[in-house]
Simulated scan of single mutants.
Amino acid sequence: MKILQIVPSISLIYGGPSQMVLGLAPALAKEGVEVTILTTDSNGDNGQKSLDVPLNQPVKKDGYEIIYFRCSPFRRYKFSLDLLNWLKQHASEYDLAHIHALFSPVSSFAARICRQQKLPYILRPLGTLDPADLRKKKQLKQVYAALLERPNLASAAAIHFTSNQEAKVSERFGIQTHDLILPLGVVPTQKESNNNLLEKFKIPQDIPLVLFMSRIDPKKGFDLLIPALEKLLSQGLKFHFVLAGTNPQNPSYEEGIQKQIQNSLLHPHTTITGFVTGELKTALLQAADLFVLPSYYENFGIAVAEAMVAGKPVVISDQVHIWHDIHNSKSGWVTKTEVESLSNALQSALQNPEECKNRGNNARNYALENYSWDAIARQLIQEYQKLINKS
């Protein structure tokens, strides 16, 4: 079985949804699938240097290969004529394409080429069909959908949603689709503490640590989180808040959040790390007592799954689409998108360290069983084969 994975970028700077193919590809390869990832060298949208990678040639990885192509100068819109030309020439050599992202030109035109070349394809929307997301730049997206995404959806072999809730709320533009519901996977963190890294950022280790680790974006619920944390401080609760993340597409919003915290009573109780990866990311996940993500909408929440597999209880809103999993497995606390509801959940967690520990253990067990790349890859291969046979 030869499978293409097509994604606009796999740079760390774009976060988990883009990076997921780097977890999926080796898991598929382990099961004997020949995997080729097509992507661009985009590495941020605001003047960052492109990825330092060979272009237009296979780069061998753990049993699979990646081919990087030059991204157009307008990186925010992720377009590569070289990638699309390569796909036209080589589509017939593959059995199926798994395309990640909608409303991204390289993905949209890749689906169109697959259709022309009679290569069956799966689309993974990454939450872009959520009504809340479609309201952003609404008129432009309506035109884009009519011209490109509606026919792409109509001809897709399947639409890959990462939760039942994502599938339930997603817009289909009047199209009947075959839905494939499979979560994303996570890689278990190594249990090796690194106190030196925490000391470098002056993160105290004698009081509870509340961790936010995700993209700094309006949809993440900062207008709920900051007031909720301020309320807890005013009530005398002791904790330290770590804000880990960035926003390469909206740096002004990130700066605004940082200034808001600097002018808040949260300031002496907060560490802002910026974007983290590698050892520091692992150290923060291990040191955290509680992970929080009160998003207004989230099709999966890969950061939540990463915290769970690290054994951390999570406090999330009921708009993070895996909230049913969290609730049913008692892996944390689920709140409304309201300051009062969020502060009550955080207070309950912080005041009950033994319950926090129990729910953290539940979180790890659930994540290892349900968010394992190996298990997901095996299920996905079965779906791939069904779609290939059907085509």
Rank of each mutant, 00 (worst) to 15 (best):
S252L: 13
E254A: 10
E254L: 09
E254C: 07
E254P: 05
E255M: 08
E255L: 07
E255T: 09
E255G: 02
E255P: 02
E255I: 05
G256R: 13
G256V: 05
G256I: 04
G256L: 12
G256K: 14
I257V: 14
I257Y: 02
I257C: 05
Q258Y: 12
Q258C: 10
Q258N: 13
Q258F: 10
Q258T: 11
Q258H: 14
Q258K: 13
K259V: 07
K259Y: 06
K259C: 04
K259Q: 15
K259T: 14
K259P: 10
K259H: 11
Q260H: 08
Q260A: 10
Q260N: 07
Q260Y: 05
I261C: 00
I261E: 00
Q262E: 15
Q262A: 15
N263C: 10
S264P: 14
S264Q: 03
S264E: 06
S264C: 07
S264T: 05
S264K: 05
L265C: 08
L266N: 01
L266W: 00
L266F: 03
L266Q: 00
L266C: 02
L266R: 00
L266T: 00
H267V: 01
H267D: 13
H269L: 01
H269V: 00
T270R: 00
T270L: 00
T270H: 00
T270A: 00
T270Y: 01
T271H: 07
T271F: 08
T271S: 15
I272E: 01
I272Y: 02
I272S: 06
I272K: 06
I272T: 07
T273I: 04
T273P: 06
T273K: 03
T273C: 06
G274Q: 09
G274I: 11
G274C: 07
G274K: 06
G274F: 08
G274M: 11
G274L: 06
F275H: 11
F275C: 03
F275D: 04
F275S: 07
F275K: 08
F275P: 04
V276H: 01
V276N: 03
T277L: 00
T277P: 04
G278C: 10
E279H: 06
L280H: 08
K281M: 13
K281W: 06
K281L: 12
T282C: 09
T282L: 09
A283V: 12
A283N: 04
A283P: 12
A283T: 07
A283M: 04
A283L: 12
L284R: 03
L284M: 06
L284A: 04
L284Q: 03
L285D: 09
L285M: 15
L285P: 09
Q286V: 02
A287W: 13
A287M: 11
A287L: 12
A287D: 14
A287K: 12
